[in-house]
Design a binder for these strands. Structure first.
Lengths: 347, 347
DNA sequence: CTGTTAGCGCCTTCAT
DNA sequence: ATGAAGGCGCTAACAG
């Protein structure tokens, strides 16, 4: 049994001949450019349909021969996950330059909306596309919309601003991620009952608050034996996270589960180990980094919820490119999954 | 802070001028073609290095202008996972024809090595690349090696033949997948002790036996309270799987965990439900299909170990294409991960 | 409104 | 061993 998936290769010229027009006219119809009589449009479209004609992308790219420039706006500071995304962008450099694509990275303070908004405004007109790790704030939303209005393609990365008119979001569903974390903590705790702690960077960050929301949802409805303590805020910093958690551990002897929503994992793990409870408390966090990898192997962490940083970097570039060229986006391919990573399926 | 990732766009002509030779000579050096004096080679290579020159892929593709043909050799029969791979290949058809790539699918009996080997032999000379869901058997290995010797690019898909000279394997590490399944069953069972059942398609299939190996490894070393029963074989068929499992459930009242290694999930779930033990037994299986999705949502299945079929289809095509063009393979991008899918992170 | 034409950057004969 | 020249299929001026 054999099954063929592709047609034979026609060219614009073939379509032109078949429709009784010239190359240029077919090209106009193909790109919905004005200046063609409706009737002619119909004839050409019919010929295109009839032959399931697909223009040769390589030829189109070559003829257009326009270098494109994209920019990634990333948080300043030592967040390991963000550094991984940048590292993967770096690994694409040969791929990028073979396609005459230029990618730049600018770092900025994402915790301050006005700084971020100003950084975005400054980009206007200089790039074909912008990928931004965004903060959901009216000023940022406005800056994104301004870019879009100016004809720049914009994708949000990791953290979305759904109320803006960004063209695409590359990242996970953070509510579902929180739910997944909740289900893991609940199921891995097992029969035991007790308290569950949450450490977040800041509840002002949309991704963090969404994760917490999802986590609490599952806890409340499915694990009545577990009671969730008020959220601690560690600003994604190791020291601060360690302090707040250490204090909490001191006050509650019956903590059986711990959800670390953001970064600061080093501090969280230290507080847990120093309290001598590394193995008794079910500890679920986010992202696979050198540190979380080690913690998973040691059995201190039980699971990491992860979004593949390499995939996010590549997806953001591909989506910006598709948008710039007016090609369709392969949604299935660009969708970022919520990965559950445990010791035995570490990538 | 700004960081630029790509150089400006030089062309072959620039390199030619800089090295004091003609276009054709640069092209020869670029592709390691013979007929250039060693000294000239060195000069040209130096110029290429110095400028970090990357040939424009679109131009190369256009100039070569050769349609490529690939073929996927897939198992006949109604395996839902394999059908998903084929479906995703179908979704790529526009992408494929825009690149003048032809992909065909042939179905064959993968349980019979001689049939599979014959099918592979029949392909020789007709394709630029072959992707095959393989069976690890001397006859199949020989057939793969013959193809390779004839200049065809070969990738194994889902199930590998590591002893062959295939160019690449697109699929997961099945031992690690089995270990992951084992860890999940063990941890989700929790404090309870009891027996664990395994249902496989056939222990003759390399992927199945590797999964079982990994599963047992983890069980033996980490969950001494659980004893693994002898492997049942259901040939990936629903009816047969149901029968053998139903019998086993009847004989053992203290089964607390179940690992379904291959397909036949419908039958496995039915046996479990009919015995009224759907919610007490921790049930881990493979792949996200319409059925396993439903079972996860119902709480009958607790987790599915999955390999993203869309990713496998696209990775196989991209790898074959890169091999055919002599481009580097992006290993990180093409690597297939072991996904843990539970109710809340269903894709 | 429609057609003609000169490239885009590389590969591939065919000469030299 | 090296160079010159004609495409590959599409786009974008520029004519008509």
């Amino acid at each position: 049994m054999t099954d063929t998936l592709t047609a034979t290769a026609l060219t614009l010229k073939d379509i032109a001949r078949e429709a009784g027009v010239s190359l240029a006219t077919v090209d106009r119809v193909l790109h919905n450019r004005p200046g063609v009589r409706p009737d002619t449009v119909r004839r050409v479209k019919a010929a295109i349909e009839r032959n399931a004609f697909q223009p040769h992308v390589a030829a189109a790219e070559l003829a257009r021969s326009r270098a494109r420039r994209f920019v990634f706006v990333m948080p300043a500071g030592p967040n390991p996950f963000m550094q991984q995304i940048e590292a993967y962008l770096g690994e694409m450099s040969a791929w990028l330059s073979a396609r005459r694509l230029g990618v730049e990275v600018v770092a900025t303070d994402v915790f301050d909306p006005s700084v971020l908004a100003a950084a975005l405004e400054a980009l206007s007109g200089n790039y074909d596309g912008v990928a931004v790790v965004a903060l959901d704030h009216p000023g940022v939303r406005a800056a994104i919309n301004d870019l879009v209005d100016a004809g720049t393609r914009v994708v949000t990365l990791v953290s979305d601003v759904p109320s803006s008119r960004r063209h695409h979001y590359v990242g996970i569903d953070n509510i579902a991620a929180g739910r997944t974390a909740g289900a893991l903590v609940g199921r891995l705790v097992g029969q035991r009952s007790g308290k569950v702690a949450i450490v977040a960077g800041s509840q002002g960050l949309r991704d963090h608050s969404e994760r917490i929301f999802g986590f609490n949802q599952v806890m409340a409805t499915e694990f009545p034996g577990l009671s969730v303590l008020p959220v601690l805020e560690g600003r994604d910093e190791d020291d601060r996270s360690e302090q707040v958690l250490a204090r909490l551990l001191g006050r509650h002897a019956d903590i059986v589960g711990l959800y670390n929503v953001g970064a600061g994992t080093q501090g969280v793990a230290k507080a847990l180990s120093d309290a001598g409870r590394g193995k008794q408390v079910v500890f679920v966090g986010h992202d696979v980094t050198a540190l979380t990898r080690r913690l998973l192997l040691q059995g201190v962490m039980d699971a990491a919820i992860s979004q593949n940083p390499g995939h996010e970097a590549r997806a953001a570039v591909r989506v910006l490119l598709a948008l710039a060229r007016g090609e369709p986006i392969l949604r299935e391919q660009e969708k970022i999954r919520i990965d559950i990573v445990m010791r035995d399926n570490l990538p």
